[in-house]
Design a protein around this nucleic acid. Structure first.
Lengths: 193, 193
DNA sequence: TTCGCAAGTCAACAGATGTTGATTTGTTGG
DNA sequence: CCAACAAATCAACATCTGTTGACTTGCGAA
């Protein structure tokens, strides 16, 4: 008991996790092609070669950033009634504040979707883990269309706010709640059209 | 008159235009970072160095792709009444068909917005040449918010269809017009909310 | 024809990219 | 204390990136 691993300096799982976290941050701010493996390794204070060792390569790392998080991409306790609130809440978080992990995944995917290598991974996840579950959750006649439309709405608002860095959606109203109310109205319009 | 330039093999303006066109096509399908200058030059059948000569560099070329087209980014004869139709039409064109030039610019911007260098140019154009004119066109109380929301809606649908390559919005209805009708309803909801 | 100039090519640069194998270093079990 | 093994580093690779200067070639005017 004297030698309990108090401060392990060579911890494989810890460094692996650190690399994953650093990559997450980088990919959230720049596209797949813009981020270099040396940037990520530098953030952790580690040699580049480790990334190759642990993740096989850049694609492997990116893929794991998108899939390693155990938490579901869609809220679990989401019913047809609470859905507009949920989605609206998700998309209106303070840009500079700590974000919901689902929103972070969303941003990462939006940022790198145009890179051929990253695009393949992203399109699969978008389809299997977001669109399809969303459509199932919605159910009914034109569930596919509604799910696609909801996703488009969320992506549009997200792209505008984070990628295009426009703040024209936020501060144009007398109160924040009034703005959210309008946005929620749109989500409801899609669901009930 | 015997030597009218029937087939000019060394035409500066023609090759310049050809390079510009090739770049346009490339940037429409991949992101700024993914596209190499040698790819573009190869399409035209020309040496890479010419791009540097004519456009100063990659950023210059990209900037000119986005600004060289004289045609306006927003329809000129667009009134408050015809706006939903216009925007809806713009965003629902056949993905494989020949696209409206405004839609093409839109896609190019969406694709490369996450690349730091290209992003600067894009955000300026988005703000000055699209968002502001759109808000002016709308007018009234919360014109800024409405313009942003319209843009978000258009971007979302565009990203979903072209970047994410989802076709869940198109073929889920009994008729194409029914799908468009619903989408137009959303645009109207934003404008009249 | 011949000259000049511009159009276009060639070659090489300097830097960054992802990736790989050999090597060092720290830790742990005997 | 000392081997053994994994963690981490080092060094170099091959390739691709955008960019630059010197070179060649074709066209048109005199």
């Amino acid at each position: 008991m004297t030698k309990k691993p108090i401060t392990r300096r060579r911890d494989a799982v810890a460094t692996r996790a650190a690399i994953l976290a650093a990559a997450h941050q980088r990919f959230m701010r720049e596209s797949y092609d813009s981020v270099g493996l040396r940037d990520i390794a530098g953030d952790v204070g580690v040699d580049v070669a480790l990334i190759g060792r642990y993740f096989g390569g850049k694609e492997g790392l990116f893929g794991e950033v998108l899939t390693s998080d155990e938490r579901p991409l869609l809220s679990e306790g989401m019913t047809a009634e609470t859905m507009p609130d949920h989605l609206c809440q998700l998309v209106t978080e303070d840009v500079n504040a700590e974000r919901d992990h689902r929103m972070e995944m969303f941003i990462i995917m939006l940022r790198s979707a145009s890179s051929p290598k990253a695009g393949k991974i992203i399109r699969r996840i978008m389809g299997d883990d977001i669109l399809q579950p969303l459509a199932d959750q919605i159910g009914g006649e034109s569930a596919q269309w509604r799910a696609n439309m909801l996703l488009a709405l969320m992506m549009g608002v997200s792209v505008l706010r984070t990628v295009m860095e426009s703040d024209g959606l936020n501060c144009m109203f007398e109160s924040e709640s009034a703005y959210k109310e309008r946005l929620r109205g749109l989500f409801e319009a899609v669901l009930q059209a």
